[in-house]
């Protein structure tokens, strides 16, 4: 599991540097999903950075496009594009815009408007089915975006068509743009709801690598929903569970403190 932790720390480090440099928002949601990305891009996804458009690749779609720093960092660390490009994030003329951009190698779909990517993922999974191809589709959603009705249209569709080649991962960090999810629009009982919609639901600790890996590898005959209970801002104590860090960007001093904390948690990185 060391490799997962090392990779996740690298993702968090690069994401923090990007938002600090660009004075950008959304670091909290990038940090909450870093461990999931680490596992996905280490061992789960069948992808080739040298051939990012290979027909038989697994498709990974980040629906919570505002948290793109973590995905850009992941892709650069995996070799989809040069690490130096991360320093252009959010700058004039950079393809690394502050929501996920499909012009970036390794990015399947531009996202930024919530409630779009998961229905598109259903289309991909359905296409694989009728083309009789074995690749899989993974879609990582935020919790707040489950307020969008289009996602529930997609949950119904995927279950009706038994799209067991489709996995939805919900980064359930419990904080959305204006407050806690249970105060804005309560999602609970989320597990029961998804079960009732006909999905194979697995609730996990979204920061436990072994459990993430096991959930993603678990065979299924239904579409699979992994509800990953996470901590917004995970890894930096003054960002954790704080709505403020949905918006705020760290100062140079705060960045240094954040990176020092990551170093202490994982000296091997």
């Amino acid at each position: 599991m060391d490799k997962y932790q090392i990779f996740a720390t690298q993702i968090r480090t690069e994401a923090l540097k990007m938002v600090c440099r660009a004075k950008a928002s959304h670091i909290g949601g990038a940090l909450s999903m870093a461990d999931i990305l680490s596992v996905l891009y280490s061992d789960i996804l069948q992808i080739d950075p040298q051939n990012p458009d290979a027909c038989d690749r697994d498709r990974f779609i980040l629906s919570k496009g505002h948290a793109c720093t973590a995905l850009y960092a992941t892709l650069a660390l995996k070799g989809f594009f040069p690490m130096e490009e991360l320093s252009t994030y959010g700058q004039d003329n950079s393809r690394l815009m502050s929501h996920t951009n499909h012009k970036v190698p390794g990015v399947e779909l531009s996202t930024g408007s919530l409630g779009h990517a998961f229905p598109v993922s259903c289309g991909l999974a359905y296409a694989a089915r009728i083309k009789q191809e074995t690749w899989k589709t993974y879609c990582l959603l935020s919790d707040g975006e489950l307020d969008e009705g289009s996602n529930w249209e997609a949950f119904m569709f995927a279950a009706h068509h038994h799209l067991h080649n489709l996995t939805a991962i919900i980064d359930y960090n419990k904080i959305q743009a204006m407050g806690n999810t249970n105060e804005v629009i309560c999602l609970e009982p989320l597990e029961d709801k998804l079960n009732a919609f006909g999905w194979n639901v697995i609730s996990i600790d979204g920061h436990n690598y072994e459990i993430i890996e096991a959930a993603l590898l678990q065979p299924t005959t239904k579409p699979k929903a992994v509800i990953a209970h996470t901590i917004k801002g995970k890894g930096v104590d003054f960002m954790e569970n704080s709505l403020l860090w949905h918006y705020r960007n760290p100062t140079e001093e705060q960045l240094a403190e954040a990176l020092a904390q990551l170093q202490i948690q994982n000296p091997k990185s």
């Binding site: 229905p119 598109v120 993922s121 289309g123 999974a125 359905y126 083309k131 289009s150 997609a154």
Partner: peptide
């Protein structure tokens, strides 16, 4: 909404 997005996914493939 779902129909339009599913179609986008199919077209992408």
């Amino acid at each position: 909404q779902n129909m339009a997005s599913i179609a986008a996914g199919l077209a992408k493939e």
